[in-house]
Design a protein around this nucleic acid. Structure first.
Lengths: 128, 128
DNA sequence: GTCGTTGCAAAGCGTTTGCAGCCTA
DNA sequence: TAGGCTGCAAACGCTTTGCAACGAC
């Protein structure tokens, strides 16, 4: 089921990507990570960003944020349960604390619930 | 902003696609629509499915259902406000009636709310 | 007969992968 | 030095588009 998992090395590229994600207060996409990472390592390629994203996902350091109709974003793992807000104007995604909870009553007969995802849409404070 | 919008024609392909969507009790993807459509019009191509999906979307006959991390699905327009359930096992998506509502309190200061999307995950009745 | 539509193949776009050289440990 | 990592370019999967033939009205 699982590969022997090689010994990871701390390259400047990997460090730059991990720090970019940890320092951000909102989830970031591969292209944004490339731009930020290139401030430290100008030669960095997009393929490297993707490979490190996948490595960090597998080691559990970051989480994939998937919103309807958009390519995935990534944020630090270990944030508490939260949801996301997508600004209709600037397109940025923000973390939202809290959760309405109590969604089980919505389920049809015989269905079981293991998780949920909520995305809010509107204008962020900068764009409102 | 908007093209003069040509006079649409009722081809067998378009009819088959529209009927497949209207007859389904759950949202369908392009590949599924191709398979169903080919029962009526075996020569149908995937490009035709996509072109008709987009035409039906613009004329407001169908709605795009976008779930996190999956390609879009399509369902009849005019269904009342609802959400979606994604089965972890079979991968199918089902419509869910009802809505928790009252999500405004979750917003940070200065943010405005125009809409929301909720996706539930778990096992459907067949897979539970 | 017009002109919207179709099938096919090529092009786009975001993501993944093969490969040879590079660099961390 | 070994072998994981990187940059580059080719490959992929899904969707769109150019083009010539087709067919609805």
């Amino acid at each position: 089921m699982s590969e022997p998992a090689p010994q990871p090395r701390n390259t400047r590229q990997r460090t730059a990507i991990r720090e970019a994600i940890d320092a951000s207060d909102r989830p970031l996409g591969p292209q944004e990570l490339l731009e930020i990472g290139r401030r430290d390592v100008p030669s960095m390629s997009l393929a490297t960003v993707y490979r490190n994203i996948n490595a960090l996902l597998e080691e559990g350091a970051i989480t994939k944020v998937e919103l309807p109709g958009q390519p995935p974003l990534y944020e630090s793992a270990g944030l508490k349960h939260h949801h996301h807000f997508h600004c209709d104007k600037c397109g940025r995604v923000f973390d939202i604390e809290g959760c309405p909870g109590n969604l089980k009553p919505l389920l049809p007969e015989g269905f079981t619930l293991t998780g949920h995802e909520i995305t809010l849409y509107g204008r962020c404070a900068d764009c409102a």
